[in-house]
Design a binder for these strands. Sequence first.
DNA 1: GTCATTTTGTTCTCGCGTTCACAAACTCCT
DNA 2: AGGAGTTTGTGAACGCGAGAACAAAATGAC
Lengths: 222, 222
Amino acid sequence: MTARTSHETAREIPEATVARLPIYLRALNTLSEDGIVTCSSEDLAAAAGVNSAKLRKDLSYLGSYGTRGVGYDVDYLRYQIAREIGVTQDWPVVIVGIGNLGHALANYSGFRSRGFRVVALLDADPERHAEIVAGVDVRPFDDLTQIVREQGVAIGVIATPAAAAQAVADKMVEVGITSILNFAPTVLNVGPGVDVRKVDLSIELQILAYHEQRKAAAEATA
Amino acid sequence: MTARTSHETAREIPEATVARLPIYLRALNTLSEDGIVTCSSEDLAAAAGVNSAKLRKDLSYLGSYGTRGVGYDVDYLRYQIAREIGVTQDWPVVIVGIGNLGHALANYSGFRSRGFRVVALLDADPERHAEIVAGVDVRPFDDLTQIVREQGVAIGVIATPAAAAQAVADKMVEVGITSILNFAPTVLNVGPGVDVRKVDLSIELQILAYHEQRKAAAEATA
DNA sequence: GTCATTTTGTTCTCGCGTTCACAAACTCCT
DNA sequence: AGGAGTTTGTGAACGCGAGAACAAAATGAC
């Protein structure tokens, strides 16, 4: 189980590094748009808002793509990171739950620009099935199976109310989706082999509130 | 600098624990709604999707609110966590950028239910100033100073395009906001004493894509 | 060709977070 | 009252990630 016998690209990239690669990718895109051809780890680290030592260590997990004494070729490094993450290929995505948030997600331009393609918008409410959002028509949730099978969808986005989220997730897993991005404020239980990431506005605000409260307390005792 | 002389509640709660407290709080709310009065660490951990040992250790940073051999009183623990996070008080919040996402955020019910009150919606585009969203009218961005001063706002939400985000953040910090929740896909530079948390859809999807790609590769070599 | 300069890639150390394992403490039954 | 059964709170071990520091490698000046 631990022995990886794959003959290529079997290097384990730490999770913390994986989470930063998209940030580096975005920073490189910005540099490239500004016509910058080469950059040092210091430059890129500043653009990405991290320590340069950490950046170099992160990149070293991918391979040796820099030149000592010179730095990194922006476009070359950009391609290498994109390939490593997997955004050089096309990822079909379904969004379930076309309320306020679902609308915003469907219209989000950052989707298309990164290899993610919204192939379907699904909602349980028949009243929404007439709508066309961002050029894609809203369809009944029951169409999920067919769409996933036909389009080879691996990634699903849940933007439903909390009460519906677990049932949606169960169905997604059942029909073969193995990565879920969950915007509903609830914990999802899925089997092994399925990745879930959650985005939770309320939790982020509460974390900020905690620190804000501590700042106020520190102020008071000072 | 290291010596904390505050005479009360000076215990340092680890950041990782702080990030989980809102999850526990939500789980406790659900249990309470279901009429459950007492729960064990095992129960609560299951509801929150974490290990029970981790849960107990997290709670131990707050104090000793359980009873050995019995478990935790749901409502009592709920109150203690809420107080620790700071959501027993009222937090006025401003949202800047009322596009698709700003609309969704303004309408998000999880705001009010947790002590967060949207006191203003701001947008630089004059065309939006006629709108009323979620019962709050959209006002010019320049009103920020006045609103923050009058309402004592400490938390700001940025839902603008990436290009505008840094300028908005600068202004927020200038007028006294010390906690920022950033939805714009860009790195924000702020001075010390200001907390920034970011929510980035595109990054989350790319992380999922990476793992998805690895699953596919593992499949191929198997 | 040699030396000084720059910048990467890597090693090492430290601290934080997770998990295990168990003693302390409470309840309930007899 | 005492003992069996539960469940919390915490001490200790372990593993991962962050950052400092340095060696290796490339460029450019002379």
